[in-house]
């Protein structure tokens, strides 16, 4: 794990309504003798109640940026506040607990546990928080109902289609009512219509007044669903608006 080195000049300036605020976020990676800078001093504010897309070509730094925003990758420089908490000033244990309480994850490959059924997969964050398994499963089933796959609750992941597995992953991300939902390429493994349905669903269940939702994608078929689009190129923000710039 890389040490956190805060840049004193980057502190402050976060907007009061910002769910996520990054100031001067820089991230370097070692590649042999070379140091590659993947993010160059990112300053941005993500608001709650919006569906924010982070887009860009492969290697532009978008996955690194959301990894840092959700507290699973330390920045080399800079500051990240999530709902007012400077997350990289927390201890490792506090940061893990913060993620468990406040962040929901939707992974590109779903990463469901293959040997437990859909309801138990969706219940994982609640069980990790200490809730009893039966109660957690009941709440997870209710979430699966909201996502229209309540009748699949007892099935194993390999008995579900890709779209259904994605819904289970969404249920897992939302079941503990996190304040921040982070999605990594949620439509990458789905065909156009399934991807569209998943995004509609995500907008319906994940976007709330007190919740921020960030989606990393390079799927231009769904750009029109975004409330806000942040474009990265070579580790720098090159566009920040409600639509993609002309030519994309």
């Amino acid at each position: 794990m890389m040490a956190t080195i805060m840049d004193p000049s980057a502190i402050g300036g976060c907007k009061p309504d910002a769910a996520i605020c990054t100031r001067g976020v820089t991230r370097d990676f070692k590649a042999g003798q070379q140091t590659i800078t993947v993010l160059h001093g990112i300053d941005t504010d993500i608001r709650a109640g919006e569906l924010t897309f982070v887009v860009g070509e492969s290697g532009s730094g978008k996955t690194t940026l959301i990894s840092i925003m959700c507290g699973i990758l330390y920045p080399t420089l800079g500051e990240v506040k999530v709902f007012g908490t400077d997350i990289y000033r927390l201890s490792d244990t506090e940061l893990v607990k913060f993620r468990l309480q406040n962040i929901g994850f939707i992974f590109q490959q779903y990463n469901l546990i293959p040997s437990i059924d859909a309801a138990s997969n969706a219940a994982v964050p609640l069980i990790a928080q200490g809730m009893g398994r039966l109660e957690a499963r009941e709440r997870a089933k209710a979430m699966l109902e909201r996502l229209n796959i309540g009748n699949q609750a007892d099935k194993l992941p390999n008995q579900l289609s890709g779209g259904q597995q994605q819904r289970v992953a969404i249920a897992r991300a939302l079941v503990h009512e996190p304040r921040l939902v982070v999605c990594d390429e949620p439509t990458a493994a789905l065909d156009a219509s399934s991807g569209r349905r998943v995004m509609d669903l995500l907008r319906e269940v994940a976007v709330a007044a007190d919740r921020a939702c960030i989606i990393v994608t390079h799927d231009n078929r769904i750009f029109d669903l975004a409330d806000r689009i942040i474009q990265l190129e070579d580790g720098r923000i090159t566009h920040d608006g409600t639509t993609m710039p002309d030519g994309h």
């Binding site: 959700c70 699973i72 244990t93 893990v96 607990k97 913060f98 993620r99 468990l100 309480q101 962040i103 994850f105 992974f107 490959q109 990463n111 469901l112 546990i113 293959p114 994982v124 964050p125 990790a128 897992r172």
Partner: peptide, 18 residues
């Protein structure tokens, strides 16, 4: 074979101790 699942659990907020 389960490293992705363990990684996902760690991301979600399961501690190394757990």
């Amino acid at each position: 074979d389960n490293i992705k699942q363990f990684g996902a659990l760690k991301a979600i907020g399961v501690t190394n101790g757990r």
